[in-house]
Write a protein that binds this DNA or RNA. Sequence first.
DNA 1: GCTGTCCTTCTTGACGGTCA
DNA 2: TGACCGTCAAGAAGGACAGC
Length: 333
Amino acid sequence: MGKHERGWVEATEKLTARLANGAEPDDDLTEAGRPDLAEALADRLRSDFPDRTTMRHAGNSYDSLGDLVVESADGETFVEAKFVASGGTRANLGQDTLTDFGLFVDATAWSDFREEIGFPEDREALLREFDDYPDDVRDWSYKSAVYDRAKHLKNAIDVSRGQNTGSRADEVLADPNASETEREAARIVNGILELDREEKLAYFDHLRAAEQDPRAIETFAHLIVCGYHTADALREHFDADLDEIKRLIETDAYRLYEVNKNTGSVTVENPADLLAGFEWEDTRVEIPEDGTSVSVVTGPPDDRRRVLNIAYNWKNKFQGIQTPSMNVFVPEA
DNA sequence: GCTGTCCTTCTTGACGGTCA
DNA sequence: TGACCGTCAAGAAGGACAGC
């Protein structure tokens, strides 16, 4: 959820609580929020909690777990509401998330590691091998000089939108009709992709040697599964809330509702189901010898359960160029 | 074995926020 | 104001699997 979206989301959540309680919609909330989505979510909550006595907005969402609280004679259920454009529980986080949140003790952050091993210099050397850049690329005093040149190389080999850049470079190199300029661009693109993969594998070697903090890993996994998918949300809940989250999950008092912004369809996820059977022993980050993603796993070797997959990616241009990032996936049960 | 569909994984572009 | 960063969401690739 982008910061710019928080306003309408909060209005929609408040509107949902009013509608679920049978109150008249508030004009200001109706204008600021998405009444169609609020109605859809309120309908679903009324259906799922027929014995509720009241529903309330939890206030500033960062002050407590859940956005909405359903009260009934049996107690409270905390509801985290997410408004999404497509399905799937996942998070896109900053490149240094795992070290920033202490999942690894004394490990170097990914961004610092690249500097230490001279990745930027090696990448620049590869980019300099191409001598047919246009006049308007910025000089090397700008960080964006790398982006300009990478973009030009992509244009030179004619990568179409959504196409895998490495696959396109391979096509060019296999094409007997490709020009020498196109081939040179393709070779450099492939060189950077290879450099990036080597760098990631080296970083994984570094992580593998680092000590891990099982409680931080467990906290991270619980927060992701419970729908806290942004750095701010993780930060707000990270230190204090693991025990409370576990209590809510154990007492079946936490739900994650996803409302599709395009269709208004509502799906509900119960973290207790996703985490059923997990005993949270020997929780760790498993790092493959050959791969660019890691997994959070828990349980003894003979009953190892995978909780999360975390992919190390670069966004924009192609791998190794612009925006390092992490994509987090919750594997299907 | 072939084909189509669904789902997961991977890659990408866009955009708002921050800061110098 | 521009450069850079973090985040969101869309779409492609490819594997799994069911139906024929």
